[in-house]
């Protein structure tokens, strides 16, 4: 399993470096997704399948989709339209595909060997994560909710489009 760990780490580092050096945001995002996938494999090999799944669902799934949508919805004009046409050129997708293929090969190899004996004897599943979240780290969960509240209020204020003088109107209609 050590070899899987090192290969995934190399893929993660390579993908991150390529991401940082890309000029186009969409292209960089593709590498970022690969980097996150590689980190998920590392978590899996270390015996944390639940965290690996979360990494996939939350980062590579939800947040990346959000990023891609924002980049596409920003609608940056003629320049972007031309860039989008070039998006399907092989030079754009071949790099991330190769890196992703390495990860896939690793994964198939691990499955073929009949699942992963984790590096340590323990494997941390959802139950353990839940117990520690709502046991010793209870206050952490509560503080995170306050953090989200603070971020939400700040984003609402900075992003609100209402003109200042109309902002009090809804108070009169309870």
């Amino acid at each position: 399993m050590t070899i899987v760990f090192y290969v995934s780490s190399a893929v993660a580092i390579a993908a991150t470096v390529l991401m940082l050096t890309r000029v186009r945001a969409v292209h960089a995002l593709l590498y970022l997704i690969v980097s996150l996938l590689a980190v998920a494999v590392i978590f899996y090999v270390l015996g944390a399948p639940f965290v690996a799944a979360l990494e996939l669902i939350i980062y590579a799934g939800a947040i990346m989709v959000l990023f891609v949508f924002v980049v596409m919805l920003l609608n940056l004009g003629e320049e972007t339209v031309r860039a989008e046409r070039a998006l399907l050129a092989p030079s754009m997708w071949i790099g991330p595909s190769v890196l992703a293929a390495i990860l896939l090969a690793e994964f198939i190899w691990m499955l073929a060997r009949g699942g992963v004996p984790p590096a340590q004897a323990v494997s941390i599943g959802p139950v353990e994560v839940g117990i520690s979240l709502f046991g010793p780290y209870l206050i952490g969960v509560e503080l995170t909710s306050m953090l989200l509240l603070g971020g939400l209020v700040g984003a609402y204020h900075l992003g609100s489009r209402k003109a200042p003088h109309t902002e009090v109107t809804h108070a009169t209609h309870p």
Binding site: G140, G150, G151, G154, A155
Partner: peptide, 20 residues
């Protein structure tokens, strides 16, 4: 963990307070 959460609570609020 509480160090980092406290720090982020402070920072995230400050971003919006500065740009208020």
């Amino acid at each position: 963990v509480s160090l980092f959460l406290g720090l982020e609570l402070l920072s995230v609020s400050l971003y919006a307070m500065i740009a208020y």
